[in-house]
Simulated assay, not measured.
Amino acid sequence: MALKNYSSFPLLEEYLNYLTVIKGRSQNTVIEYRTDVLMFFSFLKEQHNIDGDRYDLAFVDSEFIRSITLNDMYAFISYCQNQKKATAGTRARKIVSIRQFWKYLKTKAKVIDNNVSEELETPKIPKRMPKHLTLEESIRLLIECENNPRDHCIITMFLNCALRLSELTSINIEQVSAESLRIIGKGNKERAIFLTPATKKAISDWLAVRESVSTSALFITKTGKRMTGRAVQDVVKKYLAKAGLDIKTLSTHKLRHTAATLMYQYGKVDIRALQQILGHDSIATTQIYTHVSGEQLERAVNSNPLAGMFGV
């Protein structure tokens, strides 16, 4: 069920404008919500055998929305699981997208009186430790790129500042000061990240060779244009491969996981401080980074005062 050719409908566009202008949601978040909602209504069109061009969703009006039941929503989630093989995490995101749209329809657009999506339960998502590099692997990665000032600066900032890809590509030179980096994160929220000595040196080395061009972007291509997310991803994959690391399971976001994990494991960082560094709204999100290593577990067990009883 391809979505790229599907038309939208007025109520959805009004909602997406609300998310952008009033709620300050990022472009990526708005795109995800739009995709999920369009997929839901496209599914309903097929289920209800509604006539007309398969890509035309103009039939969606207030009356149709009020006819949608909780069973319709569960049927869609079942379709995502069984036909589209969507993971529990993906299904949970689609449920959130539907819930938020229905909440808007009731509280803001006043289209519905009864929000049936409130009864829509999310699937249980298995908790897994986020994939990350070890300290030794991180050092290998940094060594591989040390002869390229720009690429070394990119990877150093990922591993020291725990940045999101979108945050790194959006950095302008004026956001960098002698001691800190000013980041504009999700929801257009601003936060400051203090620079480590390694980060300061990497930035200094890059700026020393960076050409003077019209763009204010910190990271630019050979043609002087701001680097895109894809370009940065290609840089990271290049050096992951050179370091002998798995490019299929590692990514720029895994470098963010790595930075957060190393801060927590080696720096004994308070979780609320880590929350601020990462730019999370909820501390529950930050807690996925606070997994412990096998060595930490072994030390914890052996710290028990009864561990050395009877001369063992």
Rank of each mutant, 00 (worst) to 15 (best):
S180R: 11
D246I: 15
K23C: 15
K23Q: 15
D281K: 08
P149S: 10
L278A: 07
K237G: 14
M309G: 02
D270P: 03
F9Y: 13
N302R: 10
E190C: 01
H48D: 15
E295I: 11
L120V: 14
V96M: 05
Q265I: 13
I171W: 09
L207S: 04
A231N: 13
Y33D: 00
D51F: 08
N147A: 15
W102L: 05
H152G: 06
D246F: 13
I271E: 01
C80R: 07
T29N: 14
N71E: 12
T221E: 03
K103H: 12
N148K: 14
Y264W: 01
A241F: 15
I31L: 14
T134C: 11
I203G: 01
L195S: 03
Y104Q: 10
H257M: 07
Y289G: 03
I125A: 02
E46K: 08
K124T: 11
A198D: 06
N148L: 15
E137R: 12
I154Q: 00
R93K: 08
W206L: 03
K110T: 00
T90E: 05
M157T: 07
N17Q: 15
T252I: 05
L262R: 04
I112V: 14
M73F: 07
N71A: 04
T29K: 10
I183P: 10
V209A: 13
E144C: 12
G187M: 11
P197C: 01
L16W: 07
I271L: 02
P130R: 02
K108V: 15
V111S: 12
E14F: 01
T286G: 01
D270G: 01
F76A: 09
T87W: 06
Y15Q: 02
F158D: 01
V235R: 12
V116I: 13
K108A: 04
Y6K: 09
N115M: 10
S303H: 09
T90A: 09
F41E: 03
K45S: 12
T87S: 11
R191V: 02
D51M: 05
H152D: 06
D205K: 07
S26E: 07
K189A: 05
I143G: 07
L306M: 13
V235M: 02
L142Y: 00
I277M: 05
K238Q: 08
E211W: 07
K131I: 13
F64D: 13
Q287Y: 10
Q27I: 10
W102S: 07
A192T: 12
A75V: 05
T169R: 06
